[in-house]
């Protein structure tokens, strides 16, 4: 599903270069639930953004579903993001003047799905995250956990191949975090490939595989038996 070889990325800082990713080799199969761990500033988000085609590496190869990701035009990149990827952010990033339902429907809108089908699908995914009754509410009327669940429904709406989540529980309290992780585990159980960036070990333990990042390199890549989030709620 994902195939990364010798990925490098640096940022210009002043007139120096900050080498953030220093040769990453990584692959992920369909159906995996992977957490990317590391301390703050270790390059987790940079890595995830490259996976999400929001950014591009300086060197190295990236195959997404056997498609080489290299020098894409903005238009093609938008297409791939829309078809292959679903994003979940730490700060939810819902559009504040749109209802929960319309937020979920947005990726479908950019796919050109007609309104009726769009709303049907969106409602289906809202139901899936347990928020069908909140469809007409604005984000400001939802709790943090509810917002993140709407965001998850939105990420699922376009039925992407991979879900990418950058600190999805970073803004939530522990109990709510576990509820969100439970939802993520359920979605993974249905076969969706999911990558989560986190710096919280307890969250990482709820995934099937932990990739440790330090100083721009993968220092450890372990498969574990995931802790059931439900058990901790």
């Amino acid at each position: 599903m994902i195939e990364i070889t010798d990925l490098h990325k640096s940022y210009p800082v002043g007139n120096r270069k900050l080498h953030v990713l220093k040769g990453i080799n990584f692959s992920a199969q369909e159906g995996e639930l992977i957490s990317i761990m590391g301390s703050s500033g270790s390059g987790k988000s940079t890595f995830l953004n490259i996976l999400g085609i929001l950014d591009e590496g300086d060197e190295g190869k990236y195959l997404l579903d056997n498609t080489p990701i290299k020098n894409l035009s903005e238009k093609v990149a938008a297409n791939y993001r829309n078809q292959f990827l679903g994003f979940i952010f730490q700060s939810f990033n819902l559009i504040n003047y749109k209802t929960a339902l319309d937020n979920v429907a947005l990726p479908l809108y950019y796919q050109g799905v007609n309104r009726k089908e769009r709303l049907e699908k969106s409602l289906f995914y809202l139901e899936k995250v347990g928020l069908a009754d909140w469809a007409d509410h604005l984000p400001s009327e939802l709790s943090g956990g509810q917002k993140q669940r709407v965001a998850i429904a939105r990420a699922l709406a376009s039925d992407p191949k991979v879900l990418l989540a950058d600190e999805p529980t970073g803004a939530l309290d522990t109990k709510t975090s576990y509820e969100v992780m439970d939802l993520i585990q359920q979605i993974n159980d249905e076969g969706k490939t999911i990558l989560i960036v986190t710096h919280e070990p307890d969250i990482a333990k709820m995934t099937k595989r932990i990739v440790h990042l330090k100083d721009g390199l993968i220092i450890k890549d372990e498969r574990i038996e995931p802790v059931k989030a439900m058990a901790n709620v």
């Binding site: 999400g52 929001l54 903005e74 238009k75 938008a78 297409n79 993001r81 829309n82 078809q83 994003f87 952010f89 990033n93 559009i95 947005l106 990726p107 950019y110 796919q111 939105r154 376009s158």
Partner: peptide, 13 residues
């Protein structure tokens, strides 16, 4: 931010 979100969700330029 909103425009960035829209782009991440697949909005073409």
């Amino acid at each position: 931010k909103e425009i960035g979100v829209r782009r991440a969700l697949g909005a073409k330029p």
